[in-house]
Amino acid sequence: MSDLTSAASVLAAALAVGLAAIGPGIGQGTAAGQAVEGIARQPEAEGKIRGTLLLSLAFMEALTIYGLVVALVLLFANPFVS
């Protein structure tokens, strides 16, 4: 593997993990804030709000895991190596 390919793969892996964590991180913070606000306004709907929140947080976390998988593929099973 050439030095340029190695450097580009490491940089791409770092960008994949970094960018994959930014979006869901912002989304999770916003969702949690809105859920707390909704529970404060309607305490009787706490169970439904909490269930929906946990499901949506799991989907957002899956996006981060996809970024991690892409980074691991670039580092250990590099498709750019001939």
Rank of each mutant, 00 (worst) to 15 (best):
I39K: 10
S56P: 09
R41P: 08
S6Q: 14
T30F: 12
L11V: 15
A71R: 02
L74P: 08
I49R: 06
A58Q: 12
A62G: 12
Q42C: 05
F80N: 15
E46D: 06
L15G: 14
A14E: 01
I49G: 05
F80Q: 12
Y66Q: 01
L19G: 03
A71I: 02
G29Q: 08
S9K: 10
S9D: 10
G29S: 07
G47Q: 12
T64F: 00
F80D: 11
F76N: 12
L68D: 00
I39F: 11
M60V: 04
L68H: 00
F76G: 01
G18Q: 03
A45Y: 04
A21Q: 03
E61G: 06
L63E: 02
A7Y: 13
L54W: 08
L15M: 14
A21E: 02
G47E: 12
A16D: 04
R41C: 11
A16P: 10
V73C: 09
V10N: 11
S2M: 05
G29E: 05
T52D: 10
F80H: 14
N78S: 09
L55P: 08
L4S: 13
G27E: 04
V73M: 11
A20G: 14
G33Q: 04
V36D: 05
A16T: 05
V81T: 15
R50C: 07
